[in-house]
Design a protein around this nucleic acid. Structure first.
Lengths: 340, 340
DNA sequence: TTGTAAGCGTTATCAC
DNA sequence: GTGATAACGCTTACAA
């Protein structure tokens, strides 16, 4: 059924080794033999089978990318940039949506291992490295993205989330805000924790505390909307809310507007990530930009370095971030004068 | 370096065939031999190599999914649902972002073919089937999603886009709108074409024509924003704009609001797809809901059917859609009274 | 119940 | 320049 190297040899009236030489452009082959072989290859649409090559020890040119979920924009963009970067250099990518489940992560690791991958890029929701240690045991090079995986790999490509929180806090403080609420979801992931601590650290250095911090376990607009309402119920005097993601911030905008607080006149709102939806909403969202696609591409570079044996064997890349000031934040003085 | 079946046999003091029997749970093995083998497998963390199994004719349990791009929400959600459905039944998925380029599509096909896949799910931006015919020649079962690929496969899972356009038109007509503009982007894809023709057919059956149709080649908010401005420059008297995607509709909302036309009081706006961002914007967007995740899951079912040999060998699945009326559309009478 | 051996598609070694 | 042949990890007759 399948056409292999021997069928080509047979058709071209030569031996498998000569065909192999032609296919791999290695060793000497006479012009006419090469011609006959190429004709046969064309005719039978022959193509060497990667799996058999690996039996002989060649790299699989296959990598695994394990991400929490492809259907949230952040990981969609990240996964896309990783996949495209690998494609450019002839690598195939198994993208795996682990859906936050350690059991799924473990199953994926099994599947990937039995496919013989050359390397892996991982972002796991929990800091739990357990499902991945088998990859490490099999000496598969691993790069962490978006969040470090201590104990698993020392190579991580991400941004300084703590600093991002600080920048946001200082932006709001500079606008005169003193009563600031925070919505953090999903609660347990490292970037979110860092953002909250960057925020609170900056406030404290000004002798302030967040008026309220609401934690949620879900990323969804709906769940963040409820958190925002709880926050506003208890602390109606806040003049600004920061969401640890653009989604959380957008949810806060909805909650505020639905209860008649105008944004930014009465309430300033800021987010994090600068996803496309940040500029979809009206007023457009002030947020921290992070170079998602660049993160993916850098992670691929790092993995390539590890796979080719030359370093770096340990490195933490923190890519630059910056604030994007848009229309959702304004001076607090205005708020007071229009306050509810 | 790598641990294979013979190393296990050696360690357990038995033969490779017996190990194979244990691994595949086929044939008889005595309890004690099995025990020794399982111990060895555990100790050496052995796992059969999928590529070698395929040499012996077993299915690869690998499928290819070729989509225009993972970083746009629609395909992110679709790709995610497909990947998850395959994961559930033990299949690995190569997700390939073809980025609208036939050259990339062809390269992907080559790569996939040399990995020996069991089947493929494809959505190609252009109707160009050329890059994929090799898959067909190699008898790889193919299912089209979101848009049909005539000549390549007769199996397609999608929605009735024409009907969606009709529903939208009738919704607006029912609200008294008579001057309706359309923004269509990206212009050449089948679903977009269908949506426009559904819209115009419905208008014509009421003796009307669209006031203006603006076509764009890019999906982006930015480019659609410019289209919307062109439309409003030329036909400031429209009372409603339909975007053939939620992004196009959101861009229209921005353009309208930026020139002081309030939505929906002065201008009604409707979109298509019901992506998350449709409920992010304020006012929340009236749009046509389509069951994206369900489309992915159904496509997987169809492909499974084809791979297992029992039908269907030709079938077009049109999944149900419905309109989601939100706040961005209102009665046209209100518009006239507040008109510019 | 277990072992031997052939063969899947490929490449590398070595002889011609 | 070219062609046998062994080996990679695995499954499956077939023999014992």
């Amino acid at each position: 059924m399948t056409v292999g190297i021997r069928k080509i040899a047979q058709m071209a009236g030569t031996s498998v080794s000569t065909v192999s030489r032609v296919v791999n452009k290695s060793g000497y082959v006479s012009a006419e033999t090469r011609q006959r072989i190429e004709t046969a290859i064309e005719a039978l649409d022959y193509r060497p089978y990667a799996g058999a090559r690996m039996l002989r020890g060649s790299p699989s040119k296959v990598v695994g990318v394990l991400l929490p979920s492809l259907d949230v924009p952040f990981f969609g963009i990240l996964g896309h940039s990783i996949e495209q970067a690998f494609f450019k250099i002839g690598y195939q990518t198994f993208i795996c949506s682990t859906a936050e489940s350690p059991a799924k992560e473990a199953t994926y690791v099994e599947m990937l291992l039995s496919q013989k991958l050359d390397g892996a890029i991982i972002a796991s929701s929990r800091q739990n490295i357990e499902p991945f240690i088998k990859l490490k045991e099999h000496n598969i090079p691993i790069v962490a993205v978006d969040r470090p995986m201590p104990g698993l790999t020392d190579v991580c490509v991400h941004v300084d989330n703590h600093k991002g929180g600080t920048i946001l806090a200082e932006h709001l403080l500079g606008l005169g805000h003193r009563k600031i609420g925070i919505i953090c979801a999903p609660r347990h992931t490292e970037p979110m924790i860092q953002r909250v601590s960057g925020l609170t650290d900056a406030l404290r250095s000004h002798g302030l505390e967040p008026s309220d911090i609401r934690y949620g376990s879900e990323h969804s607009l709906h769940s963040c909307y409820r958190l925002a309402n709880m926050l506003l119920d208890r602390h109606g005097d806040v003049t600004a809310i920061v969401g640890t993601s653009d989604t959380a911030a957008i949810a806060a905008m909805h909650a505020a507007i639905d209860r008649g607080m105008s944004v930014p006149a009465r309430l300033s709102v800021a987010g994090f990530d600068d996803l496309p939806e940040a500029s979809y909403v009206l007023p457009r969202l002030t947020t921290i930009y992070q170079p998602i696609a660049k993160i993916g591409e850098t992670a691929v570079q790092r993995l390539l370095g590890m796979m080719s044996g030359d370093g770096p064997f340990a490195s933490e890349d923190k890519l630059p971030i910056r604030i994007r000031v848009r229309e959702s934040t304004a001076h607090a003085a205005i708020c007071e004068s229009q306050g509810t």
